[in-house]
Design a protein around this nucleic acid. Sequence first.
DNA 1: TTGCCACATTACTATTTAGTTATATGTCAA
DNA 2: TTGACATATAACTAAATAGTAATGTGGCAA
Lengths: 111, 111
Amino acid sequence: MAPKVMTPALLDQLAERFKALGEPARLQLLSALRQREQTVSQLVQSTGLGQANVSKHLQLLCSAGFIARRRAGIFAFYTLADDGVFALCDLMCGRIERSHREQRAALKLAR
Amino acid sequence: MAPKVMTPALLDQLAERFKALGEPARLQLLSALRQREQTVSQLVQSTGLGQANVSKHLQLLCSAGFIARRRAGIFAFYTLADDGVFALCDLMCGRIERSHREQRAALKLAR
DNA sequence: TTGCCACATTACTATTTAGTTATATGTCAA
DNA sequence: TTGACATATAACTAAATAGTAATGTGGCAA
């Protein structure tokens, strides 16, 4: 995977998915769904975001393949499509931590 | 890493970095840099993007910590900060491939 | 049916951002 | 110095997008 030379189409798909994760509100939704499957109202409640806003973000995450929708009567339950998303977040968090460490080290040296 | 409950600050930093990867032009630049360290002009040449545009994208990738800058006389050489970025791309590409497989499988079933 | 509820969608505003053109900065050579 | 070159920055336009308020849609209960 991630062949050395990537076609424009692959670049677009990659970018589309990274962009889907490039929004705090959506990461918050994913993080909330990590606990358990939830309805839209529950997510509105637990995130403090507006209903229409949550609905839109969920559509986007859905079409990017990160979450799935299940209809039950009046409710729409959203759930993680798989928890591979968090492997991505783990990697990225690792980068963040490392850069923080390096910043601190640089400050020490400069002192 | 990627603690179960993420602070707003961490969510913002995560999102910022994912957003940096959420642009085909920037992925293209990273992909080009995978081969070797390159100057801005070389990247302009190899990507077909405008000079000012490339420069801006490079700044952004730099401040997101994905690449580093080295000054040599008249030139600015950009290089990957580390190739951990491609681990992220690998994971994401894996997701893309899987979703393609699932789409194909769904089509077969529906036929 | 009627009304209510959960969610989706539309229409809109404000903000962000990709891309471009023009210009500024900085380095080297003559 | 002057001029040429590489890169950065500023100013701007056009497009994308987050957020919101209002409305639409569909299922359930009475």
